[in-house]
Computed example of a mutant assay.
Amino acid sequence: MDFLKPRYTPMNRRRRIYEGKAKVLYEGPEPGTLIQHFKDDATAFNAKKHEVIDGKGVLNNRISEFVFQNLNDIGVPTHFIRRLNMREQLIREVEIIPLEVVVRNVAAGSLAQKLGIEEGTQLPRSIIEFYYKNDALNDPMVSEEHVTAFGWASPQEIDDIMALAIRVNDFLSGLFLGVGIRLVDFKMETGRLWENDTVRIVVADEISPDSCRLWDIKSNDKLDKDRFRRDMGGLVEAYSEVARRLGILPESEVPNGRGPVLVTSKD
């Protein structure tokens, strides 16, 4: 199977497989592949708050590509194959496990609120939490007992997921620290990748400022989706700053969300 030079089909002629709040999945050019398209939609509180922000999808695509490619390079298995253009990636089709895995290094968001911990407090150690992916139930937090009792994942799969979460946390913490950013927490999704008669757990979905809390080390300025959640403004500027520090975007490049060229032409 040639993943390096897939056929490219314009978006309006592809079969849509699934549409979420921030991305659309289309049928891929080869069996076992999908095309993941990043939208400009910004949502919070399970889409109770929604806005379209030009350029957001472009930035998330580029940042997520950078993270996933580096994870692949260090031997962390992911669904990512390659970026196709400014808004789309070629990915392996996986069976998504219905859990959001949240890794927390610093108290923030719901953890700070529920436990009465001052936001910004360094945690004694990294904490891994599981949330059941169900918008109608507002993605409730669940235990490993819930996960195994309801068959969402086996005990061995939970071990694999937690091992991946620790490795990804270690990598991201070092990556962002090197560019003056504190990784407060992040959300990770995983899936089952079927290869003949074997199956393995891989990192899926995206890793971007949409799914991470990222604070400037010196100023504590928020460089993530909290800028949208908390009506702070400047979301694209914050995401652009993350991309520039990672060396993804030149200083002069400004993301532009408009125009069909972003979804129909190769880079």
Rank of each mutant, 00 (worst) to 15 (best):
E119H: 06
N138Y: 03
K56T: 14
H79S: 02
G151S: 07
D41A: 11
K56D: 13
E51C: 10
E65M: 02
E51R: 03
I166H: 11
S154V: 06
A163H: 14
Q89I: 02
H146E: 04
R87N: 00
H37C: 00
E119D: 11
M86C: 09
E65L: 02
R125W: 12
R92K: 13
E157W: 05
D73L: 11
K48H: 05
V147P: 08
L164D: 08
K56Y: 14
A165K: 07
G151W: 02
D160Q: 14
R125V: 13
Q89Y: 05
R62C: 09
I91K: 14
Q113N: 10
N134F: 03
Y132S: 05
F66G: 00
K49Q: 05
V147H: 06
G116Q: 01
Q122V: 15
L59K: 13
A44K: 12
P155N: 03
K56S: 14
I127H: 12
N85F: 00
F80L: 08
A149M: 14
Q89T: 03
K133E: 01
D135L: 03
V106C: 11
V147F: 08
K39A: 07
P31N: 11
N134P: 05
L90K: 05
D41F: 07
S126G: 15
W152M: 15
L123H: 13
N46Q: 09
A107S: 12
A165H: 13
V102K: 08
E88N: 04
I53E: 13
I117M: 04
A112N: 04
S110V: 08
D54F: 12
S154D: 09
I63M: 12
H50G: 03
V101G: 10
K114R: 15
E88S: 04
T121V: 10
M141H: 02
V101R: 12
P31A: 06
E100L: 00
V52D: 10
N70M: 10
N61T: 02
F150C: 05
H37V: 00
